[in-house]
Design a protein around this nucleic acid. Structure first.
Lengths: 162, 162
DNA sequence: TTCGGTGCAAATTATTTGCATCTGG
DNA sequence: CCAGATGCAAATAATTTGCACCGAA
């Protein structure tokens, strides 16, 4: 497949991926898609919007929501399985795991070779069809621990709160 | 079929657990707590409310929300890490895993001996303090597969839709 | 008796949707 | 040219909160 993180799909690659699925590629969609693909912090819809707006000042938040829904529907994006007030998105659809801070809301990728989703007990195939299996670790990140800001603080943003 | 694993805390046990944490035990709290402890379907707040209301007709939905928040704060309940429109709760705070159907929203416990959360790479302890680590499997349950009702249907309820 | 819990209703917040307009293919 | 995408604003849906009253300790 594509390389680790160096290959953030460029405009050409993106155009091809959209065409392959019969999706219309608009300026907004291109920017949302590339922004999400480049992001490593699993942003929420509003954060994607805030970032894309710097390049496309006229894009509306609901277009971002609609685009994210479409990307998800066509397997070009995924929602991270975390419990929180807002949905978090991931441009990396390859199977991997996550670390989520319950204090500041940051979500990081978790390199974990130990766990192989393919090795699920047969009870699972009896349950139904698996789309994805991942390990979700919840805790308090070092930054929050050091700033003494931990606690049931269930904060908010996923980006710099500036 | 409430006591499969013996420990659905009764009123006495509950009274003790609350007292141990300096929590006032009201009629409503007792019912919410026992209802959640007995549930095996990881209900959302409204479902807990609907069920408890059969025994306490006057309980309000926001009391259920507040109670669930308190239980969570004191480690007597947990939120299931799934992405969805509503929060799902679990009265079982012992480490275990989950299976979530993306079609009907049902969530089941996943018996999985293979994966031991204790065996996390050192990279995790460098990241911060872990509160819990679990495997989350997302897919389509057998019932949905057979009823042909699968698809990006991201349904709703966690209980009988009646 | 007292402080915290509860119910009601209004407020917030995230996300969705109707509609007229615009645009990629 | 035209089906589908966008922007705006209003509509939903889930969850929270202010406030006066009530009940457990």
């Amino acid at each position: 497949m594509n390389s680790q993180d160096s290959t953030t799909p460029g405009p050409d690659e993106t155009r091809r991926m959209f065409a392959a699925r019969g999706l219309k590629l608009t300026h907004q969609r291109l920017e949302v898609f590339c922004e999400l693909a480049a992001a490593k912090d699993h942003p929420c819809a509003e954060t994607v919007w805030r970032r894309v707006r710097e390049r496309v000042p006229t894009i509306s938040l609901d277009t971002v929501y609609r685009t994210l829904a479409v990307l998800r529907e066509y397997g070009l994006a995924a929602r991270v399985p975390v419990d929180g007030d807002m949905a978090r998105f991931d441009g990396d659809t390859a199977p991997h795991h996550h670390l989520a801070c319950e204090c500041c809301g940051r979500i990081d990728d978790l390199p974990l070779g130990e766990f192989d989703p393919a090795v699920l007990p047969e009870a699972v195939s009896a349950w139904g069809r698996v789309r994805d299996a991942q390990v979700v670790v919840r805790g308090i990140c070092r930054r929050c621990l050091e700033s003494g800001e931990h606690g049931p603080t269930r904060s908010d943003a996923d980006q710099t709160p500036s």
